[in-house]
């Protein structure tokens, strides 16, 4: 078994990626397709995908393929872009949570904020001053997930080398993939996974969006790192 990932992209996350200037995250223009593959351009590609789409996507995640110590294929968090519903100037985002659940989510956010800031940020309440919506929580929890040997919606797309497009809460709820069912519980109506050479691009939306080849083609162009 390989001790190291066998086909990590040429330049995956490195210590130099963090911290980075916030301005970089605000960039609107997609990087040239020929731009080097790193976490920075990956995020820009995800952002370009969401902001350039006619449909209203809530988030995009790149699941990066690698191998674990036993040689099993793993899709793990590569990068993600979350578009807050509140930024769209639309209706108040859906939250189905109890006060206890909200307090729990805020506590987790506060703890994570302290952890990455490396200091006591208990006075820094801005990060928890708004309720943590269901889709924000789903996105955050996604950062902890991996999909081994074709498991989950992303793993299915990667192993079959075909996009998986699940539209409609009923279809999500009836899916054999736990991630799809979980997405439905957290208010998603559409989940899509498009395989690429080095992983899978996943998009989710709280709206019902039916399959278009346009989106799939865009993913394939934006995430074609071999060219």
């Amino acid at each position: 078994p390989a001790a190291q990932p066998l086909h990590q992209p040429q330049s995956s996350a490195s210590t130099s990626d963090y911290p980075r200037p916030p301005a970089a995250a605000q960039s609107q223009a997609p990087p040239p397709v020929s731009a080097p593959f790193n976490q920075e351009t990956l995020m820009q590609r995800l952002q370009a995908l969401i902001e350039g789409a006619r449909e209203s996507w809530t988030y995009a995640i790149f699941w990066q393929s690698s191998y674990d110590m036993s040689g099993a294929s793993v899709l793990g968090w590569g990068e993600g872009f979350y578009k807050d519903e509140r930024d769209k100037g639309k209706v108040k985002p859906k939250t189905t949570t109890s006060l206890v659940e909200q307090e729990y989510r805020k506590k987790v956010l506060r703890d994570l904020n302290s952890l990455i800031s490396g200091a006591d940020t208990s006075a820094d309440d801005a990060v928890v001053d708004q309720e943590v919506t269901d889709t924000e929580w789903f996105f955050l929890v996604s950062m902890t997930q991996n999909f081994v040997n074709g498991g989950g919606l992303p793993g299915q797309a990667f192993f079959q080398s075909n996009p998986v497009w699940v539209a409609g809460p009923d279809r999500l709820a009836a899916s054999s993939c736990e991630r799809a069912r979980q997405g439905q519980v957290f208010g998603l109506q559409t989940m899509v996974c498009v395989p690429t050479a080095n992983g899978v691009v996943e998009l989710g939306s709280t709206e019902l969006i039916f399959q278009t080849s346009d989106l799939v083609n865009k993913v394939r162009v934006l995430f074609d790192f071999n060219n």
Binding site: S12, A13, S14, T15, D17, Y18, P19, R20, P22, A25, Q39, M43, Q64, G76, W77, G78, E79, G80, Y82, D84, R86, D87, L109, L112, N113, L115, I116, D124, A126, V127, D129, Q130, E136, F139, L140, M143, T144
Partner: peptide
């Protein structure tokens, strides 16, 4: 708990930063 992989750490920092910014500007 402190061993957050680098890619996830950067994503998390960005997510929390954007959220904080939005709250402050709202």
């Amino acid at each position: 708990h402190t061993a957050i992989p680098q890619a996830r750490k950067a994503s998390l920092a960005r997510f929390l930063g954007k959220r904080k910014e939005r709250v402050i500007n709202s």
